[in-house]
Design a protein around this nucleic acid. Structure first.
Length: 491
RNA sequence: GGCCCCAUCGUCCAGAGGCCUAGGACACCGGUCUUUCAAGCCGGAAACCCGGGUUCGAAUCCCGGUGGGGUCACCA
């Protein structure tokens, strides 16, 4: 690994939507690389497309990154030595740099209208040719230019691309990738509106922000020769490049909205915890080389390297993400779990109950239930009867356990047995129940199953005696009574 | 279509010429534990895209084919 004086990497999303998992992983790799190298992780917003810009998108993306725990050292919200960090606020810089190229004769104004260009492209395509700009405006005489200017046409600016030669992209993940200049055309660097295009703004910013490594998705590999041309024209030393493989949808196509949940925000809403998503994403396209799967953020930082990033695209698998999530639900400190689950309790209408309950009680509930939940949504759902009494009985459970003759009476006997216990702990409860089971000469399940239904409304859940001890004597007795009555009235 | 990238179980990864009878994980199937459901534990099925080379020896190197992906805008 080469040692750089100062590693500076950036994540540069365009605020046109929410952060999807591909972007999140790119951000993560940048973050891990920066942290592992003692460098800086910079956030920059590429918001030069005013048409597609979405007001909420910026806040949304920042929030998703924060939620994932990818804190940045410099960015639009916190500034830094090379700001501003929004391209829309750096327009003078691009114009200044563009002027330099114009004056040096490395770029030229183009007066073609978008319509003309589109028509030209279309014609070339129809003729089976590769659509490339003809270079029509490249050799305009000063008189012709003056004439067009006089008509009031605002030109775009194009970079002069050499007709021959090769551009070599040296990529940390892919090695040397060679592009022939003949496949490129004089591309636009400044739109007629005075706003830079991506390939220009990106280079100007990376150079001015002293970016040492550009780590981005593979879809940008084909743009890189153009950007290298811009570096050359501007006289800047290019950074190192690392193009990470794409994340594909299960049908092998590029991720889009129609593939269900692909946004960080959506996963969050579905009850995934950031630790799990981060861990899952890290292992999608990167491998530590051994068989460990669960990594804390610090472990990831310690072990990450760009060399170990794979070359081929990965298909994301919601099932494996779900597995990671269930692992973390069991691994996380209870306090952390509480914090993460709270919004979901509120959403389920249990906010008040949670706040009224003893913190310790809530933590015990979470500890009891968590091995069964795969998401926070499930966790909350499985906890609900610990916080409210007015649940309904599962109809299938009713058919199975409440329709047996004598169940109401049995439940009352159970209640009776429980009422005599002085210390309402798990062992005493079980002892009392086992005694009753023996006395009645029934099977354990004959009492246990109807009791669980009476106490929780459900047929599945944690061990019954665990549930009872947690609920406490009073609530157990009340719920058994309620169930016995319900059976007498409804069956 | 041109250019570029890629190719190991269904999916994510390991493998950097002999350690491969190809390893792990998810999912799947079976068993175990058990008051239910999970979790856990044990076991099973499941892959080197094809064809040529190079080599004593190739999943690993080279070439070709095929397949998949990306990109070709006054989008980023």
């Amino acid at each position: 690994m080469r040692l750089f004086l100062s590693v500076r990497v950036r994540f540069a999303p365009s605020p046109t939507g929410s952060l999807h998992i591909g972007g999140a992983r790119t951000a993560l790799f940048n973050y891990l690389f920066a942290r592992s190298q003692g460098g800086k992780f910079i956030l920059r917003l590429e918001d030069t497309d005013f048409e597609r810009h979405q007001e909420e998108a910026e806040a949304n993306i920042l929030e998703s990154l924060r939620w994932l725990g990818l804190e940045w050292d410099e960015g639009p919200d916190r500034g830094g030595p090379y700001g501003p960090y929004r391209q829309s606020e750096r327009l003078e810089l691009y114009q200044q740099e563009a002027r330099r190229l114009l004056e040096a004769g490395l770029a030229y104004p183009c007066y073609c209208t978008p319509e003309e260009l589109a028509a030209e492209r279309e014609r070339m395509r129809r003729e089976g040719k590769v659509p490339r700009y003809s270079g029509r405006c490249r050799n305009l005489s000063p008189e012709e230019r003056a004439e067009l200017e006089a008509k009031g046409i605002r030109p775009a600016l194009r970079l002069k691309v050499p007709a021959e030669g090769q551009i070599v992209v040296s990529d940390l993940i892919r090695g040397e990738v060679v592009f022939d200049c003949s496949t490129l055309d004089d591309f636009i660097i400044m739109k007629s509106s005075g706003v830079p295009t991506y390939n220009f703004a990106c280079v100007v910013d990376d150079a001015h922000m002293k970016i040492s490594h550009v780590i981005r998705a593979e879809e940008h590999l084909s743009n890189t020769p153009k950007q290298l041309l811009v570096y050359r024209a501007l006289g800047y030393e290019p950074p190192a490049f690392a193009h990470v493989p794409m994340i594909l949808a299960p049908d092998r196509s590029k991720l889009s909205k129609r593939h269900g949940a692909t946004g960080v925000e959506e996963f969050r809403a579905q009850g995934f915890v950031p630790e799990a998503l981060l861990n899952y994403l890290a292992l999608l396209g990167w491998s530590p080389g051994d068989e460990q799967e669960i990594f804390s953020k610090d472990e990831l930082i310690a072990r990450f390297s760009l060399e170990a990033v794979s070359k081929h695209a990965a298909i994301y698998d919601i099932q494996k993400l779900t597995w990671f999530n269930s692992q973390y639900l069991n691994l996380l400190p209870l306090e952390r779990l509480y914090e993460l689950a709270l919004p979901f309790f509120r959403q389920a209408g249990l906010g008040e109950e949670i706040e009224r309950a003893e913190r310790d009680y809530v933590l015990q509930v979470l500890a009891t239930v968590r091995s069964r939940a795969r998401t926070l949504v499930e966790l909350v759902d499985m906890s609900s009867y610990f916080f409210r009494d007015d649940f309904a009985y599962d109809p299938k459970g009713v058919d199975k356990f409440f329709r047996r003759p004598g169940v109401a009476e049995l439940l009352k006997e159970g209640k009776e047995a429980l009422s005599r216990i002085s210390s309402f702990d798990e062992a005493s409860i079980e002892a009392a129940y086992r005694r009753l089971i023996e006395e009645k000469g029934i099977k354990g399940g004959d009492l246990i199953h109807p009791t669980r239904l009476a106490l929780t409304g459900r047929t599945v859940g944690p061990g019954l005696f665990e549930i009872m001890a947690l609920l406490g004597k009073e609530r157990c007795l009340a719920r058994l009574e309620r169930a016995a009555q319900w059976i007498e009235e409804n069956i």
